[in-house]
C-alpha cells in the first residue's frame, strides 16, 4: 500500500537518502533497521513530508503523494509517531487526542476512534484531564501512539517508539504495536531495538548510508549473513 521508489533527500546540501526503495504491504509490520546515521529517521520524515524529497517517488495506494505536504498525507491516511513524541505538553490528554482528529477524515469517526483508543490504552482514559507534560515517559509514548490513531490512519510510520523507555515499558510498546496490526493497521517501524522489532515484524529492510542494502520477509532477514555480521557480530 506504500511504495517508495529511488527516494532521495537530505538537509541543506547534505544528501542523506541516495535512491532508497521500500514497499509496505497492507496489514503488515515492516521494520527498517540500520546503524545510527543510516538515514532511518530521514526516510520516515521524507515519506511524511517534513523533509522535502529531492527526487524519486512515494506512492500511497497507487497514488503519487511524493510532494504532498504533511497535512495532506494525514488527510490521505498516512501519519507518523515522531521520534521524541512531540506531544502538546501543556494541554490535557483529551485535548491532545482531539487535536489528533483535526482532519475531516478523522472528525467523521471521532467518537469511534476515541473509544478504540481508550480501550487500547485504559490508562489514558484515567488520565484524560491530566496535562500531557506531566505523564510518565511510557504514558507519553502511549499518548503519542494514541494521538496518531486519532487521525484515522491506514498506515502509521513510527520513529523509535521504544526510545528512552524502561525495558518493561519497551515490551509494552511492542505489544501495543502488534495489537494495532491486529486492528488492521499497517505499520512502518524504525527501531534501535533490533531483536524486539524483528519479533513483531513481517518484513524488514536494512538501510545503510542512505541505501537499502537488504530487504525481505522476516525469516529471510534473520538468516541473512548481513544481519548476523552487523548485529550479532558473527
Amino acid at each position: 500500500m506504500l511504495k517508495v521508489e529511488s527516494l532521495e533527500s537530505g538537509y541543506g546540501t547534505m544528501q542523506v537518502l541516495w535512491g532508497t526503495n521500500l514497499e509496505v504491504k497492507r496489514g503488515t509490520i515492516t521494520t527498517v533497521l540500520g546503524p545510527n546515521g543510516a538515514g532511518k529517521s530521514t526516510l520516515l520524515n521524507t515519506i511524511f513530508g517534513l523533509v522535502k524529497p529531492w527526487g524519486g517517488k512515494i506512492l500511497l495506494n497507487g497514488m503519487d503523494v511524493t510532494y504532498y505536504p504533511p497535512h495532506k498525507k494525514v488527510e490521505s491516511g498516512l501519519t507518523i509517531v515522531l521520534e521524541g513524541r512531540h506531544l502538546f505538553p501543556s494541554m490535557s490528554v483529551t485535548e491532545n487526542l482531539i487535536l489528533g482528529a483535526y482532519t475531516d477524515r478523522a472528525m467523521e469517526r471521532l467518537n469511534e476512534t476515541l473509544e478504540l483508543v481508550y480501550s487500547l490504552f485504559p490508562i489514558l482514559k484515567e488520565r484524560s484531564e491530566q496535562l500531557a507534560g506531566t505523564l510518565s515517559g511510557g504514558e507519553q509514548q502511549m499518548l503519542a501512539i494514541a494521538r496518531s490513531l486519532m487521525t484515522n490512519p491506514e498506515i502509521v510510520l513510527m520513529d523509535e517508539p521504544s526510545q528512552g523507555l524502561a525495558p518493561k515499558l519497551v515490551m509494552e510498546v511492542f505489544d501495543t504495536i502488534s495489537r494495532l496490526k491486529d486492528e488492521g493497521l499497517t505499520i512502518l517501524l524504525v527501531e534501535q531495538n533490533v531483536f524486539a522489532s524483528l519479533e513483531i515484524s513481517d518484513y524488514a529492510y536494512v538501510l545503510n548510508e542512505g541505501r537499502m542494502i537488504l530487504g525481505g520477509t522476516i525469516d529471510e532477514i534473520k538468516d541473512s549473513d548481513e544481519i548476523k555480521r552487523v548485529y550479532l557480530g558473527i
Binding site: L50, V81, S90, M150, T151
Partner: peptide, 11 residues
C-alpha cells in the same frame, strides 16, 4: 507547543 506534532495531527 509543537509544530511537528501539529503536522502529525494533520494541521
Amino acid at each position: 507547543e509543537d509544530s511537528e506534532g501539529a503536522a502529525a495531527c494533520g494541521i
